[in-house]
Design a protein around this nucleic acid. Structure first.
Length: 1129
RNA sequence: GCGCGGUUAGCUCAGUGGUAGAGCAUCACCUUGACACGGUGGGGGUCACAGGUUCGAACCCUGUAUCGCGCACCA
């Protein structure tokens, strides 16, 4: 660290250290090192999209993981942070397809075909797939890159297949023709979780249909006049057929029976309507007129008196005009009487609810929309080929044209959107694979709910300052600080609970787990894990043929559910195929589900005409295995039992992720963990906030409000980015991103840099009192002391000469260590950064570092006899002195060379600085890995430390521990020094305030007089003088107030600022009057309280005492101000 | 509709019943021997609103308003 520049330059420093750590294997986890003394800590990265680039969301997420991992290393744990990427089926295939189209290589993926396209995607992956992981390095992420995994790695793919086969065997995976969420843009089915509801502005179209008998003869309106009493008021009996839509038709005079319609509610203005020809019509409201050609019924609520008698009759479907089929009017309880017209058009092929109605009533299913969202032939000539939204318009126009449309009303409703493609999903009937979730019960129960927490609070192993201070306990596995809440189950086994941070997400999780629906796991894509299922239509002869291919086949018809099961034994002898008959059609299509264990078996299947299912699995069906599949899990119990990685690092300790994937990923991982590992996959889940811009909007490409983290790193440095983001990301809150915060991070790094630079400078200048190498020579025993382990007190902290400021900063350091450690234990990273910021900037730099100048800068000992009128008066450089009880060895102005005592003091102060900086660097390291390493090594803190404990890198330096009793006793670190130093600093503030009140320029030296209330030792006086920027500071306990001298009361006594002739007496009086007013108000406030017998009797004694003290203090202050006013006259 | 979270200084947020805080922004002074990416000092709040509990409420309770999120969903 020679020739240290004024500002820290991260651009050169950061790559250097990252390369150093990486080269030295600092990130590599070794399960063999795990022991009771060195517990494991593990965390798996939420795998980013393999084609993705780093976003601020990743920065937040991965910074937190890195902080946790680095802290765990410093806690002496064996850390595995396992990185990797996700193949992200739809997204990746889209990206590559789009690119190929842009290049003009293809117009459609079919131009390439499946194999060629997949090959292209692999190429793409090889080329660009590593980008995001490289970017993570720039951020400082300490991942074990030797273990990086990709969800489509061969071993990983095998896990996916095995799990599929296993769940299939267990009967949890099934194939079925169901209504699914279909994405017309991506041309695939989606799970319910991939659909988000969005409010859409559209229209509610009201159209009418004629009621007819089954044979098509019109039902006359008059025929039902006497019965159709509905309580519906006739609105406009004369105009019931006009397009303005005034519907009545029901006579009001026979309202006798109990009505389903609540009388208090506004009566629905709809009902059957008779036109001038005497024909009867129904009005239907719909948002999707384009689906009319797919309607196969009209439904009403059987309890709806307006319509109940029409059930069994028919209506004529208006579209397509060339095929105006008759549709039955059916009664179904699910129809909401009060909504719309009370008549629902039923389109079983294109609506989930309608499909269910269709099933109940055995309705025909007519598909009119193609997979891509265009209308097919059945939609009729007017709509065929049109996109569904154009078709909607066209259908509405057609209805108007044929006189069926009554009105179009602006209407807002919720429409399901494909989360990825951002287009409305189309409910579509199709054959898909579904999974009944496994291990639901235990997965639901394992997450600790807030209510559980209350009952466990008493036994909660949260760290307290006490437990922190009591060193020697071997850290327990399971989190930054052990928090392994457990409850004992009825059978006596201990069941561990999982903790969510913030806790409230547990409720969201629980709620979802409670209403869990089967998961549609098949996707109509090419990129992904192909479903390991082969099908073939087999005849009797073919079955025999199969047997001849050395596969034995057993048919077991005892399985009631499937009809019968076909089991195969493959060539290798072990049972590897399981087949089910899923269709009992003549000529039977057999469905075979195979493990991909043996390529031979697959080869046999394929060579004998078996076809693999064309679909791939949902990407989440692979990522839900992430915590163990990345660790080499095989499903083979023996092999897994011998897997050192799994044994050491599973379950993982922490998971850090966004709440937006709580269902997609977190919940599913928990279930997979229980199902396949018999244990929860992680003990703590930390949910980050979502990064938004200053205005609170989500980051998005289209808004252009998403800065590139790499740009920010180039501009400010990775440490600055990390610190800035962490400082503004409180637990459980969204993060409003503002570049200002990163700037603040940068400024903070510069501050740290310069404070260390100062240390280097004074170390060198004090060379006479220190061994030659100064800055890098320090024994690190002091640092080790704070780090716990072996306490020795022979460091350079010198208990004899520690001054009040030294003791103050050491005690404040202790507080900071406690606070930061506690914040870690509770995952309050923002609080940790706030403490570090406060401690280092406001306490160390603003106060302590300034006080050291009184010790260190006085070394030149310029002799100057002060003209002050008090024996205690000190002038510029006579600040050196000895504490009470010591004999001063250097009286003012007597010697040009420092005395032994002064050298000792200077040494001690440097030692304190080193001690504080050494500990501070450790506390900062998880947040600011680069600059702390640069300073650690540059300043030589690694000097005497053993390898692996900070000697080679700060990464493995021990995490500071709060001081224990012995340490405090030895160095005389009594809390009373806190108060004294703070009084001193408060006195400085008062003096500065006084200066400022009189507009004295900051750089102007003035004379102060302190009428001290107690004895002050020379060091403290020197500090006061320095910090007040005083020309002279006269301490005179018997000072007699001169007229016109401004005074301010301070904790150490009255501080005077003689400015004879310079001050405006009236202004000073006004100032004092204002202060007096304030003081009196405070006195009044306290007096009122104390005068209240309710208060004095009921309040706890310490609160009462505190109030009484407060009163006395304010009253003293009042008196001082009054005295000052008197002096002014 | 159900559930969750928020509402405190111009902005972003701390603050678990006892004297309203921080950072940023702002204003004034200062390039003094670590740092102008800095130092010093100042101004600025009816703690969303209304009730209640309490000697005492930003904090606890009830209700209201408002913003955000999640789940469900009616054509």
């Amino acid at each position: 660290m020679s020739d240290i520049s004024k500002t820290y330059e991260p651009q050169t420093v950061e790559p250097k250290w990252y390369e150093f750590w990486d080269r030295n294997g600092c990130f590599t986890a070794d399960p063999a090192r795990v022991s009771a003394k060195r517990p494991a800590y593990s965390i798996v990265i939420p795998p980013p999209n393999v084609t993705g680039v780093l976003t601020l969301g990743h920065v937040l997420n991965n910074t937190i993981q890195d902080i946790l991992a680095r802290k765990a290393r410093m806690d002496g744990k064996e850390v595995l942070w396992l990185p990797g990427t996700d193949h992200a089926g739809i997204a990746t295939q889209n990206v590559v397809e789009k690119t190929l189209k842009k290049e003009g290589t293809i117009k459609h993926r079919n131009d390439l075909g499946r194999e060629a396209l997949v090959a292209k995607i692999w190429e793409w992956k090889e080329k660009y797939g590593g980008i995001i992981l490289k970017q993570l390095r720039a951020l400082g992420a300490s991942c074990d890159w030797t273990r990086a995994r990709f969800t489509m790695d061969p071993e990983y793919s095998k896990c996916v297949q095995k799990v599929f086969v296993d769940l299939y065997k267990k009967g949890l995976i099934y194939r079925g023709k169901r209504m699914v969420n279909w994405c017309p843009a991506s041309l695939t089915a989606l799970s319910d979780e991939e659909v988000t509801m969005k409010e859409q502005k559209g229209f509610l179209y009201y159209f009418r249909v004629q009621v007819v008998e089954k044979d098509g003869t019109p039902v006359p309106g008059s025929a039902r006049v006497s019965r159709a009493d509905s309580g519906v008021a006739p609105e406009s009996p004369s105009s019931n057929s006009n397009l303005e839509h005034k519907v009545s038709g029901a006579t009001p005079d026979t309202a006798r029976e109990t009505r389903a319609l609540p009388e208090t509610e506004a009566k629905p203005p709809f009902g059957p309507e008779t036109d001038e020809q005497g024909d009867l019509w129904l009005t239907i409201a719909t948002t999707r007129p384009e689906t009319i050609p797919g309607d196969t019924a009209v439904a009403v609520n059987p309890k709806d008196p307006r319509y109940s008698d029409l059930i069994g009759k028919c209506v004529r479907r208006p579209l397509p005009v060339e095929n105006q089929a008759l549709l039955p009017i059916i009664g179904d309880e699910h129809i909401d009487i009060s909504f719309g017209t009370g008549v629902l058009k039923v389109t079983p092929a294109h609506d989930k609810a309608d499909f269910e109605i269709g099933q109940r009533h055995n309705l025909e299913v007519i598909e009119v929309i193609n997979a891509d969202g265009t209308m097919n032939d059945l939609a009729g000539k007017d709509l065929t080929g049109l996109d569904r939204f154009k078709a909607r318009k066209a259908a509405a126009e057609k209805l108007t044209e044929i006189g069926s449309m009554l009105k179009e009303e602006p209407y807002t409703n919720n429409v399901g959107f494909s989360e990825r493609a951002d287009v409305p999903i189309e409910p579509r009937l199709s054959e898909q694979w579904f999974l009944k979730y496994p291990s639901v019960e235990s997965s639901r129960d394992c997450v600790e709910q807030a209510s559980d927490h209350d009952s466990l609070l008493a036994s909660d192993a949260r760290v307290s300052a006490e437990s922190l201070a009591s060193s020697g306990d071997a850290p327990l596995p399971g989190g930054p600080v052990a928090r392994r809440d457990a409850s004992i189950t009825s059978n006596g086994t201990i069941e561990e609970k999982m903790h969510f941070h913030p806790e409230r997400w547990a409720k969201v999780y629980d709620h979802w787990m409670g209403g869990i629906q089967d998961w549609c796991i098949s996707r109509q894509l090419w990129w992904g894990h192909r479903i390991p299922v082969w099908t073939k239509k087999l005849t009797e002869t073919e079955l025999k043929q199969l047997q001849r291919n050395c596969i034995s086949l057993r048919v077991d018809d005892s399985d009631e559910q499937c009809g019968f099961t076909v089991s195969f034994s493959g060539c290798s002898g072990h049972e590897s195929f399981v087949g089910d008959v899923i269709e009992d059609d003549p000529g039977g299509a057999y469905l075979v589900c195979a493990s991909a264990e043996s390529p031979q078996e697959i080869a046999i299947l394929e060579s004998t005409g078996w076809n693999q299912d064309p679909d791939v699995l949902d990407t989440w069906f692979s990522s839900w295995l992430w915590p163990f599949a990345t660790m080499g899990w095989t499903s083979d119990k023996k092999a897994d039992a011998g897997n050192a990685t799994l044994k050491a690092f599973y379950p993982t300790t922490d998971l850090v992720t966004g709440p937006d994937i709580i269902f997609f990923w977190v919940a599913r991982m928990i279930m997979a963990g229980y199902e396949y590992m018999g244990d929860l996959p992680f003990r703590n889940v930390y949910f980050t906030g979502i990064i938004r811009d200053k205005q609170g909007r989500k980051m998005s490409k289209s808004l252009g409000n998403s800065p590139d983290p790499l740009d920010l790193i180039n501009k400010y440095g990775a440490d600055a980015l990390r610190f800035g983001v962490m400082r503004s990301a409180p637990l459980g809150q969204d993060v409003l991103f503002d570049e200002k915060n990163i700037e603040l991070g940068r400024n903070f790094c510069t501050k740290l840099w310069n404070a260390c630079r100062f240390r280097q400078m004074v170390g060198q200048s004090a060379a006479g009192s220190l061994p030659a190498e100064s800055g890098s020579n320090r024994s690190n025993q002091d640092c080790q002391q704070a780090a716990g382990s072996t306490m020795e007190f022979e460091g350079e902290l010198d208990p004899v000469v520690l001054n009040t400021d030294d003791k103050w900063i050491l005690l404040r350091l202790n507080v900071a260590i406690q606070e930061v450690t506690q914040a870690f234990a509770e995952y309050r990273f923002t609080d940790a950064t706030a403490t570090l910021y406060r401690f280092f900037w406001n306490e160390y730099c603003d106060w302590y570092l300034e006080t050291t100048k009184a010790v260190l800068m006085g070394s030149t000992r310029v002799s100057r006899v002060d003209s002050g009128d008090s024996p205690e008066s000190l002038s510029s450089d006579e600040s050196e002195g000895s504490p009470v009880g010591e004999t001063p060895t250097g009286a003012a102005g007597t010697a040009a060379l420092p005395t032994d005592y002064e050298i000792r003091c200077r040494r001690s102060t440097l030692a304190v600085m080193d001690f504080v900086i050494g500990n501070t660097l450790r506390l900062f390291h998880p947040f600011l890995p680069f600059i702390t390493e640069e300073l650690w090594q540059g300043m030589g803190f690694n000097g005497d430390l053993p390898k692996g404990q900070g000697g080679d890198t700060i990464m493995f330096a021990h995490w500071p521990k709060p001081f224990d009793g012995d340490f405090r006793d030895h160095y005389g670190l009594d809390d009373c020094y806190l108060q004294f130093a703070e009084n001193k600093y408060e006195t400085v503030r008062c003096g500065r305030n006084l200066r400022s009140q009189f507009n004295i320029q900051s750089n102007r030296k003035v004379n102060f007089i302190l009428k001290a209330a107690e004895e002050l030792i020379p060091h403290d006086v020197a500090v006061l003088k320095l910090l007040l920027n005083a020309e002279t500071l006269t301490v005179d306990r018997d000072y007699v107030t001169a007229k016109g001298v401004p005074m301010i009361p301070t904790p150490l006594g009255e501080l005077y600022l003689p400015l004879a002739g310079l001050i405006d007496v009236e202004a000073e009086k006004a100032r004092l009057a204002k202060e007096l007013e304030k003081t009196l108000a405070e006195i009044e406030k306290v007096k009122v309280k104390l005068a209240n017998p309710n208060f004095t009797q009921k309040v706890p004694p310490e609160v009462l005492r505190e109030h009484e003290e407060r009163l006395v203090n304010w009253q003293q202050r009042e008196q001082q101000i009054r005295n000052a006013l008197d002096v002014l006259g």
